[in-house]
């Protein structure tokens, strides 16, 4: 029963799982960078991915710090301010992750193919690589367009609807509005 109702505990578990995954990514990328330090064509995409992974670790750590300071037995205004900040932080992290992920597609392909299968993706040619970069760039506006245009037609509580709301920026707007409401009450 507790599992179903305790939202904060669920969030705590989710943040822990995210942190473990992100740290594992940083470690693996560190290993890759160490092995391919002399080859610029692998080093550059690996560093880009590593920076992305480190940014995710920092974002999750910040959320964990805010969550750790939440004591539901504290004064309502203070707790609500913290919860709204946490919500804003989570939405911004998700939004950042989703919007940067398509750009990370090519570095991930290059590093993943070399690190896991020993395949040199550069051998596929410049045109193929350029097509992948364009694909990554095109995904972002297309995703935003579909999320804004058709997101509201999805079932209200579905995970897809929540994702569409985050990509379209609707969740961010709602979180900012709620935070402002709390600040107005404090004034």
């Amino acid at each position: 029963m507790q599992k179903q109702y305790d939202h904060l505990a669920r969030l705590r578990r989710s943040l822990f799982a995210e942190l473990v995954c992100d740290l594992a990514g940083v470690v693996l990328l560190g290993w890759f960078i160490g092995n391919f330090a002399g080859q610029l064509k692998y080093l550059v995409p690996a560093i880009a991915l590593d920076v992305y992974a480190i940014a995710l670790v920092v974002a999750v750590a910040r959320q964990s710090t805010v969550l750790g300071a939440v004591d539901l037995g504290g004064a309502v205004l203070c707790v609500q301010q913290r919860l709204q900040k946490l919500r804003l932080l989570r939405i911004r992290t998700t939004l950042g992750t989703l919007l940067f992920a398509p750009l990370m597609w090519l570095p991930l392909l290059i590093v993943g193919a070399r690190g896991v299968f020993g395949i040199d993706v550069y051998a596929a040619g410049v045109a193929w690589l350029a097509a992948n970069v364009l694909f990554g760039l095109a995904v972002i506006p297309i995703a935003v367009f579909f999320a804004r245009r058709y997101g509201s037609r999805l079932q209200q509580s579905s995970a897809l609807r929540l994702l569409a709301d985050e990509i379209a920026g609707r969740s961010l707007m709602a979180a900012l509005r709620d935070l402002q409401q709390v600040r107005d009450f404090a004034a």
């Binding site: 539901l72 037995g73 504290g74 004064a75 309502v76 609500q80 919860l83």
Partner: peptide, 10 residues
Amino acid sequence: YRVALNVAIS
């Protein structure tokens, strides 16, 4: 009251 209101508002 604090816990109840915090949970209810959230």
